[in-house]
Design a protein around this nucleic acid. Structure first.
Lengths: 189, 189
DNA sequence: ATAATTATGTGACATTTGTCAAATGGAATT
DNA sequence: AATTCCATTTGACAAATGTCACATAATTAT
């Protein structure tokens, strides 16, 4: 599973793409495997790639008082990128692989350049950022409108598989509560 | 201040735009004035426009237990749109003018169509959505990492003018605290 | 299998915040 | 100027959540 696989995926992402453009994308994309525990975007470091996660899972976190606070999780067939990294700013965000994973890595700068001259790439980026913004709006809604209990139940309703894949401690920080509180919310059911 | 003004603004948004495309944009944009108190995107209603606020100010809110909870504020030279309305989904969000305001209204569907064939428009949309996503990420960071006190002080540091323009009650709901709590945070300084 | 390590659960208590009620202050109206 | 109306402040108390300590369960290593 390497080069040919990337070809296929690019094809499915861009059904009617002309050969030279596809060539340029392939030049700026490669296939990667990452073992569980690998850290990706380190705190304070600039980052030059975004990713499509083919298999496996990751979590993203900031450090707060030297404790991890999770911002998001991603699993099969999800894109991994944050606006800050996409904008070329420092991320302050660390990404860790929760399982052995495989992914396609895109060179952000090159893809953005390509978007300046190729409509299909621009449209693709619009789609990616829009999806990210929808995710952010929903999460914001949860934090502003729902109680801890409601946020927890909303999460396991929308993404029940997360309970198998992510530790309670990480889910708690993601939901914005202490792990003890989340443990008690669970016990109450 | 009407048609010619719109021309100028479109010119400044798109410095090198060809005449026919500019014509199409102008056909799908118009100048509006709104009196203080006007409500714009009503709960549960589909919405077909996004806006550039030229002067004045607005707040956006959801209703929670029949109380207003503010999601954002916007003032001069800011764009007004939410991803959901941009995607043509129901908004459930109400926008109210805090002052007499003037704005340019863009027909979302037409601009999005134009983006399918015009790179400059696509790039414009990328810029708009990216800015929105940055705003959402920062707000999310505040809600997840900062205490009420810290969120309040961060807000008046980043946007001190908001204290003059928005009521304490609205700021409180925006920050995710009761107005009594915000009042006490203020008293503590 | 056993020990060691890590994750989760539980109790006791402190802190923060929400809620209700009433008081104060300021702005608008008559 | 007096009155009304609305926003903000303050007090008293309840509810939710955080924190620390420790118990228990689950996982990993030896």
């Amino acid at each position: 599973m390497n080069k040919p696989k990337v070809h296929e995926i690019i094809d499915s992402l861009f059904p009617n793409l002309d050969k030279p453009t596809k060539g340029t994308i392939l030049q700026n994309a490669d296939y990667l495997k990452c073992a569980k525990g690998t850290k990706f975007i380190s705190e304070g470091r600039k980052h030059h790639y975004f990713y499509l996660l083919l298999s496996g899972g990751v979590k993203s976190y900031y450090l707060k008082d030297s404790k991890e606070v999770c911002l998001w999780f991603a699993f099969e067939n999800e894109f991994i990128a944050t606006i800050k990294t996409f904008e070329g700013e420092h991320s302050n965000e660390t990404i860790v692989f929760l399982e052995d994973s495989s992914l396609i890595r895109f060179k952000t700068e090159s893809i953005k350049e390509l978007a300046l001259t190729h409509l299909s790439i621009s449209q693709w980026i619009i789609k990616l950022i829009t999806e990210h913004a929808v995710f952010l709006e929903e999460r914001l809604f949860g934090l502003q409108f729902l109680s801890s209990k409601e946020r927890y139940h909303a999460l396991i309703k929308v993404a029940p598989e997360i309970l198998q894949k992510v530790s309670l401690t990480d889910i708690a920080s993601f939901l914005g509560v202490s792990r003890e509180t989340l443990s008690r919310i669970r016990a109450q059911i």
